[in-house]
Structures are given as C-alpha cells and as structure tokens.
Design a protein around this nucleic acid. Sequence first.
DNA 1: GTTTGTGAACACCTTCACAGCA
DNA 2: TGCTGTGAAGGTGTTCACAAAC
Lengths: 245, 245
Amino acid sequence: MSQQRHGSTPGNAGAVPAFPDLPEATIARLPEYLRALHHLAETGADTISSEGLAAAAGVNSAKLRKDLSHLGSYGTRGVGYDVALLVDQIEYILGLDQRRAVCLVGVGNLGHALAGYAGFASRGFRIVALFDADPARVGEQINGLTVRHFDELPRVAAAEALAIGVIATPANAAQAVADGLVAAGVTSILNFAPCVLSVPPGVDVRKVDLAIELQILSFHEHRKASLTALPGGRENAGGQEAVGS
Amino acid sequence: MSQQRHGSTPGNAGAVPAFPDLPEATIARLPEYLRALHHLAETGADTISSEGLAAAAGVNSAKLRKDLSHLGSYGTRGVGYDVALLVDQIEYILGLDQRRAVCLVGVGNLGHALAGYAGFASRGFRIVALFDADPARVGEQINGLTVRHFDELPRVAAAEALAIGVIATPANAAQAVADGLVAAGVTSILNFAPCVLSVPPGVDVRKVDLAIELQILSFHEHRKASLTALPGGRENAGGQEAVGS
DNA sequence: GTTTGTGAACACCTTCACAGCA
DNA sequence: TGCTGTGAAGGTGTTCACAAAC
C-alpha cells in the first residue's frame, strides 16, 4: 500500500552526493533483511548465502541479490555475505546509527499501545515526547514519559532534534497535528489516523491503516469464495498468496 | 509495504467467474476511495468528478479513472460518478456486505488497543473472539468480549464463520498462531508481529510493522540530510514526498 | 463545454539465466 | 564447484493525452 512520492531533487545534476539512490521497493525490504540478519547473528552465523537470507526474509534470492547489489554490496562469490558487515551497511544506509528522536501525538487507545511498544528502542529510535490535546490526559505518565500538551511541541522540537512524528489521533485532528509537526520542523510522519494528509514538499508521510488492511483481505476472501463457488468443480486455488501492499 | 502473492488459479481456463480480477494496486486503493465517498455522501454530494474524488483520496485523477474503469465503472461523461452507486459497487467488490467475522489473537499492549478499535464495526467487520495463550489473561473482559484461551479457537471457528485472524502476539509465538488459524480454516491473516510467516497456498497474509515503517522514514531522513549537507548549496528538495510502501 | 474511459508511452520492479569470480 | 552480481526479458503499475459520450 500505499503512499506517494512526487518530487525528485530537480536541479543538482552532476555532483551527486555519495548516497546511493535505492529503488523504493528495495528500501522497504531492507528492514526485513536487517531483522533476519540480526537473528542470524544471534545464532552465531558469520556468513549467509543469498538463498539463506532470502528464505529468512521471505523473498526470492534473485531479488535479494539485486537489492544488496544496489548498496555496493559486500558479498563474496562462492561464499555468501558477511553477516556483521551487512548489518553495518544496512544500518548505515537506513540511518539507524543516529538514534532518531520520535514523538507520538495522541495518547488514546492506540497511542498508549504505541508508547509502550518496546520495538522503538531496540531498532534505533528514542521516543522523546508524548503529546495530546486533551488537558485531562496531560500529565499522565506512560512508560516513564509524561504526556504534554500539544502546544508544547515547538519547545520540545527545539530542544530535541525531532526527526519523526507519529500521529495516533482521531482522523479529524490529524491534519492539524500534521501541520503542527511540519511547522515544528518535523520532516517525516507516520500516520495511523484514517485520513489523507497533505504536507508540503520535502516532508515524507507513511500511513498505516488497520481498516484498509482488513478491507483488502476481505476482497481476497470474496474473490476466493467466488472462485470456489462457481466454476468447474474442484480446485479452488493453486498458489500461496500474501497480498501486496 | 510489502507482501507477496504467488499462485494464480492455474487450471480454470475458459469459464471465468463473474469476478473482475483487479490489479493488486487498484485493490489497495479502493478502501481509500470508499472512505472519501462516505465523506462526500455525508456532505450531501450526489455526484463527484474523478478530479474531486482523486483529490479527496490523495491520488491523481487518471489513476482513479483507470482504477474505477476496472470495476466496469458507472461514471457519466460530462458529469462524474454517482456517489451512492459507487459506494455500493466498491463495497460489493470488497465483500464488505458480508460483515466478516474477525478474531484477534494476543491481548497484550497492542492487542488491547486493537480490540478497542471502533473502526472494525464501522467498516463491515465483527470482532467475534479474543484469544490469548496466557491463562492469566483468559477471562478478562475487553469491550464486551471475554478473552478465551487459544485452544478454544477450533470450537469458535466452527461456530462462527471466522474469515480473518489478526495476530498481535510477540514474534516468537506468531508462526504457531498462524498455523493454528490455518488449521481452523482461517484463510486471511493480518500480522502485527515482527516476523515472516509461512502459510500454505490459498492463505493470504498482510503484515503491518511499526518498526519497518520507522526505518523507512529514517532512510529518507538520512537521504534528505545527506542532500542538504553536501551538494551545491541551496535547494534541498523540489517535490512533495510520501514514501511508497 | 465538461468529464469519462482508454490506448499508447513510459517508468518501475521482478525474474531469469548466466558470466565472472572466489 | 558454488555463489554473487548483473544484463536482458517480462510484468505490473502510472501517466499522458485524446476520442467518445453526455
């Protein structure tokens, strides 16, 4: 699913900085490779073949090799990839060595759960602030952090170098929150609210929407049902599936 | 982000059932169109142009028209689309008229939040059961439902026609849960656990992973920083962005 | 005149298959 | 011999631009 990306660094011909411009599809898979590599490292593996890593990450090996080749890749023919080296490479590319500061806006049902999510820290992010617009919620302690009023965002953004804002508010508040984040200098937003955000050029938005995921699955249920119900007789499907976001 | 889909209904040439086989990318956008249409319907609009609907859904109008044309579309040239008709069409295609039964496995931090998510019911789904493997959690009441032990899944699956299973367990339990769901006849899975699931042919899996989303945003932060830091001088970007899952 | 529906061009991504290197 | 890196082929998805329909 399911985000856009217009705009492309128009001028700037010639002097390209030393930053590989990876295909978007590749970028989206790097975190999965990284996870698989961390597992492998824990099990003591020093090297891993493209076949093995691909299996662990749930992709096919040709795709994996092409993805890694884009980062200038450090594989050895006849052997495979050096696990530790590849971890470093991918973490560098993803910018995970920076421990970016994340703030979370909206401490309702979902926001609470996100604030308590352990995966943040373990993956190179620090939650530095929780915000809500509801005065009744301000002051509450969650996971060692105090909920502040959304008005304090600019102050916090100035103090910490806020990199990413996570929106977990109701849909009708989300655009205003996004505007506030952008005004405070945040240039990456992860939006859990079920609505389309509009943001200025240079700001990246990704969206996660439970209802949309369920509806996509519902479509496939519907499709599968209509295939088994009507046609020929036997066989209802032939291949494994797992739908493409 | 980012799922696969192999397998394709191999035999079955000829007698194709009356079910349009939409591009996966189109399917992923239909729920967004639907949401926009519901908003429009509330504001009293009877018809909407492709331009207007596209803006509301955050896509460009050519894409929207092509998407809708795949469903045999009911637009009128010079006028636009009939809002109510289009809502019905899309809800039919997505199979939302069936109010599919959903179960949720794993009632921890995230599971609690998902169980309380109001969007379920409002989008044509019924949560019919909550499961957990921890006896300490069994019996707890959440949002009017009682948490049951995961062992009871087969019984519940038999009683209700379970269509979709949502996995909100830790990663190390997720594969076992998926196996259990599949064994109980569930053919669609929404996985919030940070791991790759393997499932037999005919089962659809979609994955939602907070850490991956953050890492993708981190990459773009890194990229943006390396563009403003090094090259020429001025201009850091030119276009709006919003990254592609 | 307005707006849809769509062929054709283009861009992106995946997969194959093998040359090249350890 | 084994496995990576990659050109080339094939698919899928997007965008353009315009003819057809209202």
